[in-house]
Amino acid sequence: MKKYFFPALKLTAVLIVLTAGIYPLLIAGVSKLAPGKGDGVTVENKGRVVGYANVGQNFTDDKYFQGRPSAVGYNAAGSGGSNKGPSNEDYLKVVQERIDTFLAHNPGVKKENIPAELVTASGSGLDPHLSPAAALLQVPRIAKLRNLPESKLNDLVKAHTDGPLLGMFGPSKVNVLKLNIALDNL
């Protein structure tokens, strides 16, 4: 082993400089040209930074589109899911409560139209999106509270729907934060 010790030691030092020193600095340097300059992309509303474009946030007021349940309360200091198994009885009770709560806040909505994502926690706890169906389902409630025509809100959701990548790959989704900013500025 002795024969290999010193080459190993020196090579370790060189590889540390290369992979942990130079490489991340290079990426950070080039990323200055990227949106957000590598610090993360923020979103403004009326001149104030209200959040990160990719990070979801909590909306409890019925006048806003509400995102998915979060296991970390949408605090991006941390992240995480519920890690509840599909057959866990306590977990299933929580899901049932979420369905009941949603129905109470959205009179007129039929249970079979509630997409599962609205009553299940996201993996990151910071999911910034909803499916278009989940956003459209909340339109009648918001329209009533804000005295706006439903058609106008439906159009707003459609305008904020991001289709699949290149129109071909992956699901369609709506960024809840951006949608709510647009809603406030109607």
Binding site: G81, P86, S87, I114, E117, S122, S124, K173
Partner: peptide
């Protein structure tokens, strides 16, 4: 989707979503 959640009567057109993200599906 999760059959236990299907029994509650909601739609699982997007599949089992617990622990998943909307942008991936």
């Amino acid at each position: 989707g999760n059959p236990a959640i299907a029994k509650m009567g909601v739609s699982q057109l997007t599949g089992a979503m617990e622990g998943k993200e909307v942008r991936f599906g």
